[in-house]
């Protein structure tokens, strides 16, 4: 049974159409990420599901019921905002209880019980009587999460909930989100511009580009088999280079270097070659069959180095372990497992 169905969702602001007919089915209990760059329409889509934004066309159904024209308060959803949107005039517990009270769910005692349970889930029970202003950013974030899950909504909407946290807290919260999702099994839609977040958290990643679904699938599938240049670029730290695929099959670069392609590559002609950072290895320049590149910039990242290399007139980047140390200006070789190469349309 699908919990959320979007059919041909269109949205225009003035004369600009920002969503061009989105179709999406989300199954009960699924954790789906809407991934895309800023301005791709992902937040607008989320707001349409919440009822905060009217559609210009199409229908939204939640649990089989058409809710397209219902205001947010009549939809069985909960939303967590990027800015948390906690009510500053209420305490932590009052904030968490707010949706239960406004939706009239349960008696006063039951509500209090559910508030305690939700605060326990985010490990904040000891701060129930605090004012919002007295909380740190991370604590506010947890309160917002508790408030979103307390009413056990049919669909839980998360609008870049982790983007205001520092890196360490963010990782902690990712784990916590996963645990909460496993425990409560809420159908969750998660908007993010961070591909790592999307890949690590979700059952399914929906990649949006310019108001359209570019590609969707399981994180592993979408990462290992991007169908378009945009998808590969957005999903992994990938390098895309223009090549000509010739018989062999080989890919010929602009500077006439060639790289062997797997036998499965049957198409010929002008293509883009996808070289993922983690698949590239730096080897001595005279290694047999290695591509030749020149080191342009080296950045020390602690656990590893990031290199910018010039390959066939293009700047590519890759990370290398600290055991591989080359200097800017050096000529180096690059090898890659042919099975990891992907050829995309130009």
């Amino acid at each position: 049974m699908s919990d959320l169905t979007l059919r041909q969702i269109k949205k225009s602001f003035g004369r600009t159409e920002v969503l061009h007919g989105i179709d999406l089915d989300i199954q009960s209990g699924e954790f789906v990420s809407l991934l895309g760059a800023s301005g791709c329409g992902k937040t607008t889509l989320l707001r349409i599901i919440a009822g905060l934004e009217r559609v210009s066309g199409g229908t939204v159904s939640i649990a089989g019921k058409d809710v397209t024209s219902l205001p947010p308060e009549k939809r069985d959803i909960a939303m967590m905002f990027q800015s948390y949107a906690l009510l500053p005039h209420l305490t932590v517990a009052e904030n968490v209880r707010f949706p239960l009270r406004m939706r009239g769910q349960g008696s006063r005692e039951e509500q209090a019980e559910r508030v305690v349970k939700a605060l326990d889930t985010v490990q904040l029970a000891h701060l129930a009587d605090r004012r919002i202003r007295q909380l740190s950013g991370g604590q506010q974030q947890r309160v917002a999460l508790a408030r979103a899950i307390v009413s056990s909504p049919q669909v839980l909407l998360l609008d870049e909930p982790l983007s205001n946290l520092d890196a360490r807290l963010r990782e902690e919260m990712q784990v916590e989100l996963m645990e909460i999702h496993n425990k409560l099994g809420l159908t969750t839609i998660f908007v993010t511009h961070d591909q790592e977040e999307a890949l690590s958290l979700s059952d399914r990643v929906v990649l949006l580009n310019d108001g359209q679904i570019e590609q969707q699938g399981s994180p592993r599938a979408i990462y290992s088999a991007p169908e378009t240049g945009f998808a590969s670029f957005f999903l992994g730290a990938a390098n895309l280079l223009p090549v000509t695929v010739e018989d062999g099959p080989v890919a010929r670069f602009a500077d006439d270097q060639v790289l062997a392609l797997p036998e499965t590559q049957t198409e010929r002609g002008e293509r883009m070659l996808l070289l993922r950072q983690e698949d590239l290895k730096i080897v001595p320049a005279d290694t047999d069959g290695a591509l030749k590149a020149r080191v342009a910039i080296r950045v020390f990242l602690g656990a590893r180095h990031r290199y910018m290399l010039d390959l066939a007139g293009q700047r590519i980047s890759l990370n290398a372990p600290n055991s591989v140390l080359v200097e800017p200006g050096d000529e180096v070789g690059l090898t890659i497992d042919p099975e990891q190469l992907r050829v995309l349309a130009r």
Partner: peptide, 12 residues
Amino acid sequence: RLEEAARTMGCS
């Protein structure tokens, strides 16, 4: 956003 949040929490 506070008003929007209230709407998503069941307030008319």
